[in-house]
Simulated assay, not measured.
Amino acid sequence: MIQNELIQLLSKETEKELTYAIKAAPFYSIMLDTTQDISKIDQMCEIYRYCSIEYDDNGKPKALQINESFLGFHKVEGQSGAALSEQILQIIKQRGLSISRCRGQGYDGASNMKGIYKGVQKKIIDVEPSAVYVHCAAHNLNLVINDAVKDVTEMAQFYDIVQRVYVFFGLSIKRWDILSSLISESGTHKGVTIKNLNPTRWAGRYDAVFALKVRFFQNLTVNKFSIKMLQPKAVDLAKAADLLKVCMDEMCRLRNQFEDVKKEATDIAQKWSIRPEFEKRDFVP
């Protein structure tokens, strides 16, 4: 009981300090998302993005610090744009913040959030026209990539195999123990294990494939994908555009070096004693 009380006191004090910092900033943006907890209750996270000025010993500004502060979860009272926006405005008011200083909204691309007529962003803009809506860049890229590959049969089959490998080992304690005993815990990727395939986030698919690749062929290296690079708090729209261009350039490079990628896949297959077979197709230029 005492430790719970101490944790609650520390939480309240931290929350108070963060709220004070947000109030001290001239403007702020809100970033919100919802997800179900283990009890199937929809929870909305409350995050504020704002800038603070660092001063030197002489009291002169020396740096601009970008901050993102998480202040809590809230049970979602309704899923409509009107219900969510009303709850958001009420939360902001309870914090003692003025909606007139809100200059940005960051949500995913769900219709109840981004809708131009009845979405949350429209309801907030009706109250504060300067609160510009920005679709989360990382989430946007996830959607683009998923849409680009969802109709490719070979990709669907590949990820089905990745998921079945996890299910085969993950649903059996005995098989998982055998796999764990065979996995080398030395080297750069210590502690990496095969993972469940994330159905919505492409970065999660990267983690699953990377773990499988490391565990069955540990000497290969894998390039980091741009999605995780879009998530740091210091990333602005210009930086996001640059990162997306780098991603596109890398994909073009891989396409132009297809034979090299094919050879690497062949080497991996041979390492696993798998007969490499590639379907031949006629392409019309």
Rank of each mutant, 00 (worst) to 15 (best):
D177Q: 12
A138I: 01
I227V: 15
E277W: 02
Q3M: 08
Q36Y: 14
L9W: 01
G106C: 07
I92F: 05
I183H: 06
D57K: 09
K245G: 01
F73E: 01
I41E: 10
F217P: 05
I173Q: 09
I125G: 03
E17M: 11
S181Y: 11
I38C: 15
Q163L: 14
V149M: 02
R205Q: 10
Y133S: 04
D108S: 13
N67Q: 12
V127D: 08
K271T: 07
L143V: 04
V120W: 02
V235N: 00
K122V: 14
L244A: 14
K245N: 06
F216E: 03
I91G: 04
R175N: 11
R49D: 01
L179I: 14
I274H: 05
Y55W: 13
L89W: 00
T200D: 15
A238Y: 05
L197W: 08
G78A: 09
T193E: 10
T221N: 09
N256Y: 10
D260W: 01
M155Y: 15
G187Q: 09
P285A: 00
A110F: 10
Q218H: 10
V144Y: 06
L182R: 08
D56I: 12
E86W: 06
A137F: 04
I2M: 13
S39G: 04
I66R: 04
I124Q: 02
I7C: 15
I53R: 00
R275T: 13
Q163I: 09
M113I: 10
F225P: 00
E13G: 11
D260F: 07
L212Y: 00
Y28R: 01
I38W: 15
L71H: 08
N142M: 02
L32R: 03
V76L: 15
I41M: 08
T35V: 05
Q36V: 05
K75R: 12
A211V: 14
T221Q: 06
E264S: 06
S39F: 07
K16S: 11
H189Y: 13
E277I: 11
Q231N: 02
I183W: 05
F168K: 09
I47H: 00
S181Q: 07
E68Y: 09
Q79R: 14
P276G: 07
K233W: 09
A156T: 10
S80W: 09
V222Y: 02
K122S: 13
R101W: 06
D108C: 13
Q90A: 09
C102F: 04
A25P: 03
V144T: 13
V165I: 15
C136V: 11
I274W: 02
S29D: 06
Q43M: 15
V134G: 00
Q3K: 03
S273P: 06
K23V: 11
G72I: 05
